[in-house]
Amino acid sequence: MSGVDRRPTMAVWKFASCDGCQLTLLDCEDELLPLADQVRISYFLEATSAAGPGPYDLSLVDGSITTPADAERIRHIRDVSRYLVTIGACATAGGIQALRNFADVAEFRAAVYASPEYVETLADSTAISLNVPVDFELRGCPVDRGQLLEVITAHLAGRRPDISDHSVCFPCKRRGTVCLPVAKGVPCLGPVTHDGCGALCPAYGRGCYGCFGPSGSTNLPAFVPLLRRDGMSGLDVVRVLRTFNTAAPEFAAASSALAEAERPPEAGQRDATGEPGPGQDGAAPRHRWEDE
């Protein structure tokens, strides 16, 4: 390319996650090459061996912070990023691995690894925004392809991304799906879940399971009885709130309140939905060094 490359630079970073959210970018089959005409993909390990130097105009961050080294790395990334967007439930709410926040991580480690001492990890899995300032948070487990492109194109055009904070009920009704709880008594997290998927599950006859986390306006104390009406036990409700956005504050508060109420006399360690563990008692993440 002759002359100065005026394209903005983009970087994609990965922390603890399944890779699905950054893969979403490679799943934009129609847009990938046109996108590369508009932005210089400077750092994206999954896609390229060429790692350009920072600073980067746009950083997309996938994954949550779970190790001391990652807590350090994200601070560096913030320093070299002009606009930092977290992509997906791990980066935005700690991901499913934040289930450890409600349990004893040492026990978790021992359950998976024969020699747990080799594995260095923090007690909590935390959202990026609890570690460094974030410019935009994109929800979803995984993020929606269209929304990811919207965030990038809006950034290129200097627009505000058209990403709504409202509930899954909005798109569900817009696409003309018949309401599952009302017409069939099927439990559905739609009324408290953040839109982004376009109300996918209900369109497949399945109640929403909350993979985009809480919407901008929830009323969980009024909502939980609805799940109970539609046949879920208290523990079922705790489980469904403790999945891919388990540490999202609204879901964590509701699940902890319920878990407390539902706690069996002998809550064994084998119950992953047991008592809230360390890190749930305050808003701020507490990083503790597990391996010394």
């Binding site: 922390f15 779970t66 991901g95 499913i96 450890r100 978790f108 480690r109 359950a111 084998r270 939905t273």
Partner: peptide, 12 residues
């Protein structure tokens, strides 16, 4: 980083 799936599948 480890994510402990085998641990938190217990109880589901």
């Amino acid at each position: 980083p480890p994510r402990f799936f085998e641990a938190f599948l217990r109880g589901r």
